[in-house]
Design a protein around this nucleic acid. Structure first.
Length: 268
DNA sequence: GCGACAG
DNA sequence: ATCTTGTCGC
């Protein structure tokens, strides 16, 4: 798939001020409400799939089959970014692609999409499947200008997108994230002064405990899930919960992560 | 000036 | 994100 809003394609040569201005326009175009075409709850599971090489399967495209959920993740080799996309349906891999692009700028908190966006869009250009929703590694609405990586990609491609991060970029959790919570726990993250584009108190995402140890004194940190585009905060969390299968990360993200690692071995 | 900051 | 062996705990 290709950009539907070419004017939002991340340009790493922009000045920092121009990047921030573009993010405000993207946040303006973003819809943090459900516009999915399927129910977040209606995502079937299957047991653990085999790993390693999978043949690319293509289902006879009916109209309202189980949703196609894509996971996107990046790996790096020097100044190259390897972006991998894995698409699942019914818990089975339907397609996977990868692309390599040079990174033009360093990692700057708040401007991640200008570093990784090019590689991600290059990978999407290779993708034949049209996913119903995309799980992007990083933040969506939980961002200084409500335009994190998931929002940037979702709006540019006009595809429903969800941000799945391992750490909190900004905002305030309604309860401390330093405690141990049972699986399924959702803690709202609300906007504070660091989120300059929306009223304080707005729920911009959730900390979601997708996995937790049974009893010991060891614990797993929650995931930070936020709407990217065309998804509400509640549905974003429900989607991640529905695609998680025994691991902290949802399957699409987990498989994209390992595929990116695998693909980067083939980079000179 | 200092702190804080996805990947 | 990345550099990396062993190790603690289920």
């Amino acid at each position: 798939m290709h950009p539907v809003r070419p004017e939002f394609v991340p340009d790493p040569s922009l000045s920092q001020a121009a990047m921030e201005a573009l993010q405000r326009d993207i946040a303006e175009a973003a819809r943090f409400e459900d516009d999915l075409g399927f129910s977040p709850q209606g995502i079937a599971h299957s047991g653990d799939a085999p790993d390693g090489k999978q043949t690319t399967l293509r289902t006879g495209d009916g109209a309202a089959d189980p949703p196609l959920v894509a996971g996107v993740d990046q790996a790096f080799v020097d100044d190259r970014a390897v972006s991998a996309i894995v698409v699942l349906q019914n818990g089975e891999v339907v397609e996977r692609v990868s692309a390599v692009e040079r990174t033009e700028i360093p990692y700057i908190p708040g401007l991640l999409s200008f570093r990784e966006g090019g590689a991600i869009l290059a990978a999407f250009a290779e993708l034949e499947t049209d996913p119903d929703v995309v799980l992007v590694d990083g933040s969506g609405r939980i961002h200084f200008r409500e335009a994190g990586l998931a929002t940037h990609i979702g709006v540019t491609l006009d595809v429903p997108a969800v941000g799945v991060a391992k750490n909190l970029l900004c905002g305030t959790p309604e309860q401390s994230l330093d405690e141990t919570y049972p699986e399924g726990t959702r803690i709202p993250i609300t906007a504070d002064d660091s989120v300059e584009t929306c009223p304080d108190g707005t729920v911009i995402g959730h900390a979601l405990q997708t996995r937790q140890y049974d009893s010991p004194n060891r614990y797993i940190n929650p995931l930070i899930v936020s709407p990217g585009h065309r998804v509400s905060a509640g549905s974003a969390a429900a989607l991640v919960e529905a695609t998680a299968d025994g691991y902290k990360l949802p399957e699409p993200t987990r498989l994209a992560d390992s595929y990116a690692d695998e693909a980067k071995e083939s980079v000179e």
